[in-house]
């Protein structure tokens, strides 16, 4: 092992001790949770909760997936020299980043209900009457705005010399952008994009307000029927488990993708 990934030995040890304490505290929480766990209740609502996890995943994967595809053109529009295109993108991003997700969801779900006849005429009503589709659409629009802003920042923070180097090699601007700038921009954007994914998982809980039965929706249903507060704790454990798993997996992916950038270990 080389010296540079060790750090001061006592610092490392303190870090390890902190982690041990955290695991210990986590186990204490888990044990408390298991002792209050009502297995009958779990038998009754467990399968529903699993379906809820599925719905949450579907919502997040659809919106983050489509969002990541649409975010790039929006980011490019924000970087465009064309004033009209630039301002349109800016307006879109400002609106969706400056207003609450819940208000956006109401705007899409209840707001479009007002135009039912027009929607039926163009055969879109089946889409907008379904709370799941409306939530997916709202979340897509929302995450696109955030991801576009992340990408814009990342693209802008790639050093200008990279453009010049591409030019010096005789590459066209398009090729330079696709093969030189964009891969580096995505590396910079990796961490904030991971945060955005986690934010979407948390944010998707608001879909329960328009009767989507995701994890949160299932929890509210189970609580309204059983009046047992522990269902909220189940949801908390579920969300924490999902978020932490994704965080750890993401940091693994990040380490793997940036391994060529770190100082080489001899």
């Amino acid at each position: 092992m080389a010296l540079n990934d060790m750090g001061p030995p006592d610092l490392k040890r303190a870090e390890r001790r902190t982690r041990l304490f955290m695991i210990f505290l986590g186990l204490v929480f888990l044990a408390t949770f298991l002792t209050i766990l009502d297995w009958n209740l779990l038998e009754r609502y467990g399968p529903r909760f699993l379906r809820g996890v599925g719905v949450t995943f579907k919502l997040v994967l659809i919106s983050v997936g489509i969002g990541s595809a649409v975010a790039l053109p929006v980011a490019l529009a924000r970087l465009s020299a064309n004033r009209l295109v630039n301002n349109l993108a800016l307006g879109y991003i400002t609106f969706f980043r400056g207003t609450p997700l819940l208000a956006q969801l109401f705007l899409v779900y209840y707001g479009t209900g007002q135009f039912r006849e027009a929607m039926e005429a163009v055969n879109l009503w089946w889409f907008f009457r379904d709370p799941f589709f409306c939530a997916a659409l709202t979340f897509t629009l929302n995450t696109t705005a955030y991801q576009a802003e992340i990408l814009r920042g990342a693209i802008q923070s790639v050093p200008k010399g990279q453009w010049e180097a591409g030019h010096a090699l005789g590459l066209s601007r398009a090729v330079t952008f696709l093969k030189v700038i964009l891969p580096q921009a995505y590396i910079i954007a990796l961490r904030p994009l991971g945060n955005e994914l986690i934010l979407m998982i948390k944010g998707s809980a608001v879909a329960s307000v328009v009767t989507v039965f995701d994890i949160m929706g299932t929890t509210r249903l189970a609580f309204s029927r059983s009046f047992d507060f522990q269902v909220y704790l189940w949801a908390a454990v579920l969300y924490l488990f999902i978020v932490e798993t994704i965080r750890i997996a993401w940091s693994f992916i990040e380490r793997r993708l940036t391994r060529h950038l770190r100082v080489s270990r001899s």
Binding site: T18, F21, G26, S208, A236, L240
Partner: peptide, 29 residues
């Protein structure tokens, strides 16, 4: 390290929970 762990745990829990869920837990709980 114990205090550090406490602080880290607090952050991990309340950054990971959806805000809506935290609100319900406080309100109903």
């Amino acid at each position: 390290p114990a205090l550090q762990a406490l602080g880290n745990l607090y952050t991990t829990i309340f950054r990971g929970l959806p805000e809506l869920l935290t609100l319900f837990i406080i309100y109903f709980g």
